[in-house]
Write a protein that binds this DNA or RNA. Sequence first.
DNA 1: GATTAGCACTCGGACACTGAGAGTGCTAAC
DNA 2: GTTAGCACTCTCAGTGTCCGAGTGCTAATC
Lengths: 343, 343
Amino acid sequence: MEPTQRKLKILEAVVEAFIKTGEPVGSKALCENLDFNVSSATIRNDMAELASLGLLEQTHTSSGRIPTELGYRIYVDKLMKKIPLTKYEQSHIYNMLYPVSDAPEHLLEGAATLLSKITGCVAVATSPPGEAAIIKKIRFIQTGRYTAMVILITSTGSVKTKLFRCDFVITPELTEMFEETMNKRFSGISVADVTPAFMQSSAAALGEMSILMTNVLVAVNDAARDAAAANAAVKGQSNFFTMPELASGDGKRVMELLSHSRELEKLLIDTNSRASVLIGSEIKHPALSRLSVIASHYTSTPECSGILALIGPVRMNYPKLVSALEYTSDIVGNMLSELVEYG
Amino acid sequence: MEPTQRKLKILEAVVEAFIKTGEPVGSKALCENLDFNVSSATIRNDMAELASLGLLEQTHTSSGRIPTELGYRIYVDKLMKKIPLTKYEQSHIYNMLYPVSDAPEHLLEGAATLLSKITGCVAVATSPPGEAAIIKKIRFIQTGRYTAMVILITSTGSVKTKLFRCDFVITPELTEMFEETMNKRFSGISVADVTPAFMQSSAAALGEMSILMTNVLVAVNDAARDAAAANAAVKGQSNFFTMPELASGDGKRVMELLSHSRELEKLLIDTNSRASVLIGSEIKHPALSRLSVIASHYTSTPECSGILALIGPVRMNYPKLVSALEYTSDIVGNMLSELVEYG
DNA sequence: GATTAGCACTCGGACACTGAGAGTGCTAAC
DNA sequence: GTTAGCACTCTCAGTGTCCGAGTGCTAATC
């Protein structure tokens, strides 16, 4: 085997051994487990060269080697072979997701839960950007004497509900009136266009009725904003406790970051390929810089796509997790497109 | 001051100093901060006695004293004076909760979020047991060509929605028929009575229509089960990272416990007084045995009440947190009762 | 030129030792 | 019942030593 190729093999073996054991990898151990016959001294020379290239490092002078972030990068980009899911794993994923495929939000939450369980990582599923959604229909349902619920249905298959209260007794005639008035005003427009200015002009257009309908307008506004909002399901946070690289201070910061879907999305938004991997400090956020992220787009219709992502230790099983994530996002994309097309 | 009373004062001072600093409390430091004049030697004698009574302990022979669980217990039961909330704090709580008081689930989630923020603990809010709720009305809304949503409204003010799909094109006539059939069957019965057996007899009663309406029945069933289910909002898990008493293994176990509302409720169910405190191993769950729980009932109507709880380190500011929790549960109870009465 | 064997070297981890400091328990005096 | 004084105990931080794993280098070998 020619030397260059052997060095790559060694890098691959170091990464995989370190992912498996978490211990620095020594030349001797490597020599025994490698399938080509060279002495540990040769491997030492090669490892020294890999280290001078910045792909391996030592925790101290006389320890084994561990991969640097660059080493992981080369491994992920050039060396690793994806481990395809078994038929059993595939059907497991499908069977877990099918029952929750009744609504986009529900499905994404289910996908995040499932992914966090099978990978041991923290899983994130962002909903398709809602801004492009068109309001298809608004309905009102009386839920109590003074309370009612607005139901807003968008072109992306998303259904948002919002309860509100009136100062007066609600009657069927009133809800019908709400429905007519609101649909006339809101149907067909994009949820992104439901701005404060638009709401103000809507109130003005209602004239004296706007006093009666303040709460109705507010509820519709809330529902539309809800439909437009970036929404992310985050599951499996308990797995953070199994990641020793998370100093307790960082742990809190990461958890808080994850509850702000807007910022979270900004981090993931760069991922343009099918499944992309961000390693350590490649993630432009201090709290996450000791972790890795695997992100994958799912697509139902061209304008309707979102991201599934896994957050885990830098030392994670990339080949397996990339496969699991890609397969899951394919399934999610398919299920979502069925929801939209036939919805 | 008579000796017995002084010993209690010393216990109180030790607990409060330890809550504040987290450091074992020595006789000398105590002597300086105490408002009655005795020498450190006297305090040492008293502390030795408190230790022999099992109220104080030492981490090692020559360290200061820290309270035992029993010591905390005495402190909480007999010694501590609740610190009432300031007007400002009260109005802050009210103002944060009012906007989310449109639906019970929403309110409880808001209360848990708020409590976790102001206390630094993990906050839990369990919904009132839904089993007693009566189904008031079932409505159907078409959301797509093949999809519709069932809306189930109960006597407790809870509104549950569930999306479902049919194999046939849905028409207004069909949703009307769904509505009529389902209300005839389900209105007025308790959600707890929606058992598999009841569903089976419902399907039988529908005769040949039941084939058409399988998904409708399933959706109604799901919505009813959802309304009956014990539901708990858990917020502020990121605060677990600031509790060093949580070994990383326990952290994961606690987080997982919190996502199973049934088990969680079992732990809290014993709390019968207004605000009750469980300290360390008084909590009958191994993973939680190094933490404390403060739980408080909120009540809207006599049959409709639930629990708000705080989970934090044993060393937590009981006087302040008990007040905050009691005040919040009063507010939540009031807001909920308005929802039910006028709903 | 690539590979290997051998050896000196380096460093971290475990362990023991030390002195300072904090805090106690005990005793005898008040 | 309280207090002053003192010996005692134990932790903590710092230091020294030893061991072993693993390296880097050099010279011999293929």
